[in-house]
């Protein structure tokens, strides 16, 4: 599901990084992705669980307390709880971004920070209502168009629930988060939109489809406030995260 372009290959210099002075630093970039379901929409075989095609003009997300951790021991998202870390770096402030305005790898750069050498093997962030901008008052906003059987409806779905995601290591085509002196590493907040709308190409009794909203409830179009409580949208690549709802 995660298809990513290449990131700096750090393996060859890992040994050098491990031996670098304690003050040695590199940089760590934070990306967000809604994958192809955000940039291309629910199209083709990937319709919503109830057969709607969705395309998005915007998917606004707002986060704070975006933190990368060198967790020790590695964080077990299944067990949940606090992340125990020897080192953490924070991308300070409130960050709103649009998952539709992504690069060729479906990623949006949120920001980057200086980070000490080591493996950042855990990630946490808080989704919170934006204090300004087009999504003010909401943590997540979907703006788009739905189509089924010739019926076309524009929609705006707004979600105001604050919650915190705590994730272990990124799981995907490559391992991420290895900071070496003078180098650049990255981590990714991954939003699995099929947990919201379901997928027609999965079985009706697939757990994702059983719990997803689908789109029938919004078939009249227009603006709606939705709850996403209990849905697990936030991931680190394919790795699931512990979620704490407020």
């Amino acid at each position: 599901m995660v298809r990513r372009g290449s990131v700096a290959a750090l393996a060859l210099v890992w040994g050098l990084g491990a031996a670098a002075p304690a003050w040695a630093e590199g940089r760590l970039a934070f990306f967000a992705s809604g994958e192809d379901l955000a940039t291309e929409g629910f199209v083709g075989a990937q319709l919503t669980r109830d057969g709607w095609a969705l395309t998005f003009d915007h998917i606004f997300v707002t986060v704070t307390a975006l933190t990368a951790h060198q967790a020790e021991p590695p964080y077990d998202a299944m067990a949940g709880g606090e992340i125990q870390a020897t080192t953490s770096v924070v991308l300070a402030g409130e960050h709103s971004f649009d998952l539709v305005e992504a690069d060729a790898d479906d990623r949006v750069l949120i920001g980057e920070v200086e980070a000490p050498v080591g493996h950042f093997n855990a990630l946490s962030w808080r989704m919170t209502p934006a204090t300004a901008g087009p999504a003010a008052g909401y943590a997540m906003v979907f703006v788009g168009t739905a189509e089924r059987d010739g019926v076309v409806v524009p929609f705006v779905l707004r979600n105001a629930e604050a919650r915190t995601y705590r994730c272990g290591e990124f799981v995907g085509d490559e391992r991420k988060g290895f900071v070496v002196a003078g180098g650049m590493a990255d981590l990714e907040l991954t939003f699995h939109l099929d947990h919201v709308f379901g997928r027609a190409d999965k079985a009706a009794d697939d757990p994702t489809n059983l719990d997803a909203l689908g789109f029938d409830a919004f078939a009249a179009g227009g603006e709606h406030e939705i709850t996403l409580r209990g849905m697990h949208i936030g991931h680190a690549g394919e790795g699931h995260c512990d979620v704490v709802w407020e």
Binding site: P73, P74, Y75, D76, A77, M78, A79, G80, G168, E169, V171, H195, D206, P207, T208, L210, D211, G230, M231, H232, H235, E238, G239, H240, C241, D242, V243
Partner: peptide, 21 residues
């Protein structure tokens, strides 16, 4: 084996059925 780690969701969430361990 120092630990096992897997994709995790909230305890007792129905979505856990789909999570790999």
């Amino acid at each position: 084996a120092v630990m096992l780690m897997a994709g995790g969701d909230e305890a007792f969430s129905p979505l856990q059925r789909g999570v790999m361990t």
